[in-house]
């Protein structure tokens, strides 16, 4: 009896195989006539002005950290959501759990916004 995950692994394998075949096909079929200008970094036709590894905004890191927090908490609600109907039949306990959880999440979001974590200017 199959559990269904074998099929998913096969599907993933198929994707990987075809992608490698496509890249391999392009490698074999494409010409190769290299020269220095062709392999230089693209800069709208003019010589490279400054290195690409410049400093960039710390906001990107803040967003990444906020994402980690919120995505983790989203995943934590999922198990509760699957069983919610059965829990709701027992009483209001599960609802208040959700209420508090979402409330804490919302408070965190408001704090982050008030602190200017996602202010892009």
């Amino acid at each position: 009896m199959m559990s269904g995950f074998e099929t998913i692994v096969m599907y993933l394998g198929m994707s990987l195989l075809v992608v490698i075949l496509m890249l391999g096909g392009a490698y074999i079929l494409g010409p190769s006539r290299p020269y220095a200008a062709k392999h230089s970094t693209y800069e709208c036709g003019v010589p490279l002005l400054d290195p690409s590894r410049t400093r960039y905004d710390v906001k990107y890191f803040l967003v990444a950290i906020l994402f980690l927090v919120f995505d983790l908490e989203t995943i934590l609600i999922y198990p509760l959501a699957v069983r919610y109907r059965e829990l709701a039949a027992i009483g209001w306990g599960a609802f208040f759990e959700i209420f508090i959880f979402v409330g804490v999440l919302l408070a965190g979001l408001v704090y982050a916004i008030k602190k200017g974590a996602i202010e892009w200017d």
Binding site: A26, G30, P31
Partner: peptide
């Protein structure tokens, strides 16, 4: 066309 184009890896 995509298959028959040259594959470039920029030097940098």
């Amino acid at each position: 066309k995509l298959f028959t184009k040259e594959e470039i890896i920029p030097t940098k």
